[in-house]
């Protein structure tokens, strides 16, 4: 556990870098429904709402749009809307939504798998099921959060395509590709997108203390790289105050991305 006694001056942790990188994925979204799946995405989205994009619409992860920005897993105070599951589906099709999902596998072409490992007919490991990934990826902006970047996650080809990458979307025709928008893949090591040649996964930045070689070695395919790779920015001191004192005083973030 990292000491939270003093906010400024203490070293920035990897989890905090990830939170800022996730926040940056939502900063240019405007007034849309930000749907984070999982703890770090929730932290990053709430950080974005308190800094770069106050117009974001956020929910309690159940059925309420929250006017305020409560700490992780705290009850919201003011409610500004109702978003039961049936209305989530409406907003998916409406398009004003950016979801950040998890991914058990992501492949070279940015396809995602949360369905099954091994042959689909009889998986070696059954996962959640495709959930909303097929619909999300052909309707609204979709990003992925990978807390443990490894060659088990980043594979040449996913075993089952749940979330659709841009190449497959194009192959499926204009109805699939029109709104396909795989925006960012944020991991504990780096920030990536799918802007490489032939719609492949591209390395955008490596987190402080991580090298391009580290990321490549933890990836099961060759990453596209355009010129020199930047270092992911560290959160500002005011962002650190928000993360440490407002949104996540219990440092839950360190459980997902240990320092």
């Amino acid at each position: 556990m990292v000491s939270t006694g003093s906010t400024t001056g203490s070293e920035v942790t990897r989890a905090e870098v990830c939170a800022a990188a996730i926040a940056d994925a939502f900063k240019d979204d405007g007034e849309i429904f930000a749907s984070p799946m999982g703890m770090l995405p929730m932290l990053g989205v709430r950080l974005a709402k308190l800094t770069s994009n106050p117009d974001l619409v956020i929910s309690d992860g159940e059925s309420l749009f929250l006017a305020g920005v409560p700490p992780l897993f705290a009850k919201g105070d003011v409610v500004e809307g109702w978003i039961p599951f049936r209305k989530v589906f409406d907003v998916v099709a409406y398009g004003k939504r950016h979801v950040m999902m998890g991914a058990t596998q992501v492949d070279r072409h940015g396809n995602q798998n949360i369905s099954a490992i091994g042959p689909f007919d009889r998986p070696t490991r059954q996962l959640l099921g495709s959930r909303g990934a097929p619909g999300n990826t052909v309707n609204n902006r979709t990003s992925y959060w990978v807390p443990k970047h490894s060659s088990r996650v980043f594979v040449e080809q996913v075993d089952t395509v749940s979330g659709v990458g841009p190449k497959r979307a194009k192959e499926a025709g204009p109805a699939a590709s029109r709104y396909n928008d795989i925006h960012r893949i944020v991991t504990n090591l780096a920030v990536l997108d799918v802007g490489g040649p032939d719609d492949t996964v591209r390395l955008l930045s490596v987190h402080p203390g991580v090298s391009v070689e580290d990321v490549q070695q933890a990836t099961g395919f060759e990453l596209a790289v355009d010129g020199p790779v930047e270092t992911t920015r560290e959160p500002s001191s005011s962002e650190l105050v928000i993360i440490r004192e407002m949104l996540d005083p219990k440092t839950l973030r360190e459980r997902e991305v240990p320092s």
């Binding site: 099709a93 619909g135 089952t160 749940s162 979307a169």
Partner: peptide, 13 residues
């Protein structure tokens, strides 16, 4: 009709 499914293995499987 809807978009969901297009390009994914839901239609393959």
């Amino acid at each position: 009709p809807m978009r969901a499914g297009l390009g994914s293995d839901v239609l393959v499987n």
